[in-house]
Write a protein that binds this DNA or RNA. Sequence first.
DNA 1: TAGTCCGAGTTTTTT
DNA 2: ACTCGGACTA
Length: 680
Amino acid sequence: MFDNDDKPWLEGLNPEQLRAVSSDARSLLVVAGAGTGKTKTLAARVARLIDDGVPPGRILLLTFTRRAAREMIRRAERMVAAGGTAIWGGTFHAVGHRLIRSFASRASTLGDFTIMDQADSADLIGLVRSELRLESTARRMPQKATLTSIYSAAVNAAEPLEELVPRRFPWCEADVASMSEIFRGYVARKRRHNLLDYDDLLLYWRALLDGHSGDAMRDMFDHILVDEYQDTNALQADILLGMRSSTDRLMVVGDDAQSIYSFRSADVRNILDFPDQHPGCEIVTLESNYRSVQPILDCSNGVIAQAKERHTKELRAVRSGTTRPSLLTCMDEAEQSQEVCRLVLEHLESGVALHDQAVLFRTGHHSALLEVELSRRNIPFVKFGGLRFVEAAHVKDVVCMLRILENPHDELAWFRTLQLLEGVGAASARRLMSELGVRVMGEPGPDDDPLGRFIAGEVKVPKQAMAEVGTLRLAFAECRRAADVASQLEGLTGFYEGPLERLYDSPLARRRDLEELAGLAAGYESRSSFLVDMVTDPPAATGELAGPPLLDEDYLILSTIHSAKGAEWDVVHLIHAADGMIPSDMATGDAQEIEEELRLLYVALTRARDYLYVYFPLRYHHRRMGLDDSHSYAQLSRFFAAPVLESFERRWTTAARLPEPDTVAGATASVDAFLSSLWP
DNA sequence: TAGTCCGAGTTTTTT
DNA sequence: ACTCGGACTA
C-alpha cells in the first residue's frame, strides 16, 4: 500500500506509531511510555506533513528544551527534503518570546523589552523588598530566591497566594501579606522598565491571543505538536487552547508516569484531561519499548507499580537481553565514587564509549565527590543540570555589560556593572545611574544616551574608582565600534580582569568560563540574539573540558535526573539510592510529593539500554573530607521494596559487608537525626 | 558610604 | 555550607 522508497519516514514504524504519524484527527493524544519511540514518531510525523505539502513554516513544534526541538527537526529533515521556511521549534518560552517580539512591538504596546532570567527576577524582588523596608517588622522575610519561586508558582498555577503558600510553602505562611505587597511592587517595576520575566513570556502570549493579534497568531500554523505534555502547566494548556483555529491539527505526546516538574506547576491533569478539553480527540498508546532489555523493564515496571495514581501501562521489551540490573551496596560515598569509576572504565574497555554511559543523581551537588574522583583519574566528563553556567556570578557580570550595550536603560544591568568598580557600592551606583539618565524607557529624558555620557566621562566618580572607570569607559567605547559580539566580549573581559581578581576566588576557573562564553558568542551574528538565547536557551552543560578543541574527545555524562529526561544511554549508573536522597528529604512532605519522587526514580531507571547499576552508600560522613570519622548509617531508598529488589542482582563491596545487619536496620532514626540537624 | 565581621536562618529539581 | 542583613569601622 505504501512505497517505502518514496516515503522514508515510514521506515520501521510499528502499527501504533504509524497511526500516530498518519492520523488526521483534529486533536491527537499519544500516550508514549519510556523508550517507545516517541521522538522517532514525532520526527516522522513532521516529515510526513512536509511530504504532504505543509509548508515547514506553518508547523509549530513545542518541546521541553531547545535541544529536543533541534534533534527532532534534524531527524525530520533527514527523512524529507525540507525547503523553504524553517519549522517553528522550541520551548513554550522561546516561541512565546518570538511571537511577542513580532506582535507586541508591531502593536507598540510593549516596545523594546529585555528578558530577565530567574536570578534577575530575584534581584529585582530583593530590590523591591529592601525599598519597602519590610525587614524592620518583627519577622524576617524569606530569601529573595524563595520569594521568586512563590511568585512564579502562583502565576503558573493561577493560584492565589492565600491558597498556594500554606500548601506548598508552609514555612512562609505568616508572610503572605508582605509578599503581596512586594509582588505588586515587582510587577509595577517590571512594567515601568519594560522588563519581562520567564512567566511574562507565557502571560503576554496568552494575553495577545485574547486581543487583536489573536486571529493573526492563530492563522500562522496548520499543525501544532507538543512534546512532554505531562510536564506542561495550566497556563501552557490555556495557551494551546487559545492557539487553536478552526482548521488546525494539534498533537500532544506524553507519559503521565514521567511527570516530574510539579515544582514548576506542571500538572498531570493536563494530559489526563486532554480528551475532555479537546472533544473528538484520538488516542494512541505506545507500549513497545525499543530501548531497554527486559530485566531493566521488569525493575522499572516494579517501581512504577507502587504509584497510586496512574494510567496502567506495562512496557514490553522489543530487544533481547538477559543481564539483570545491579544494586551495589558500598561502604560510603567515597567507595561509591571508586566503584562508579571502576565500572565506567570496565565498560569503556569492553567497547562502550564514555558518552554512551551516564551517571544520574537527584540533585546537582550529589555528584561533587564523584567529580573530584573523575578529575583525579583524568576521566573527562560533562555535567548537565545543577548550577547553570550562565547563573555563575562572573558570567552574569560580563553578560550584564553586554546588556547595557544592547539597552542603555537596563537598570539591573547598570546596577550590577557599576558595583563591579572598586569603591562603588549600591549607593554610588544609584547616584551614578540617575546622573547618567538611566530611566524608564519610552519616557522623554534630558539625554537619550546614558552610555554615551558614561563613555564621555560626564559623571563624578569616587576617587578610588577612577582607574577602573577609565578602563571600563575605553572598553565600552571600543565595543561601540566593534561589529560583532565576540570582539565586544573580548574588550569587556579585558576590563573585567581587575574586578574578577578582586571580587572572587579561583579566578582561573572563572577565566576559563569566560573563554567558554566567548566561544559561544562567536557563533552569533547579532548581540541581541546572543543575549536572548542566553536567557531562553542557555547552554545546558558545564564541564571540566578545557575548551572547544577537547569537545571531540570522548567524555562521560553526569546529569541530574531532571536533565536526563528524554535521553538514553547504554550504561546508566544511578548514585545515592538512599532514603533522604531519593526521595529527597526536601520532598517528603505529602503523598503527592513522594509520588513524584517515585516517578523521578522511574525516569532514571528507564534511561538505561543494556546495563543499569544502582549504588547505595551505607554511611554518610557528617563533614565531608573532615578529619574526624563521625558518620551515620543510611537506609536504602523506600522505593526499593521487596518485589523490586527481586529484579536486582545484589552485590556488596567487601568493606560494606562489615557492619552487622541490625546496625543497618536501625539506621533510619540516625539518618533522620543527622538530616534534621542540618536545618534545625 | 564601602567593605568587613557576625549571627541567624536556610528546602531540590528548570524555563 | 551557604546567603542575607545589620552593626561597625575606616
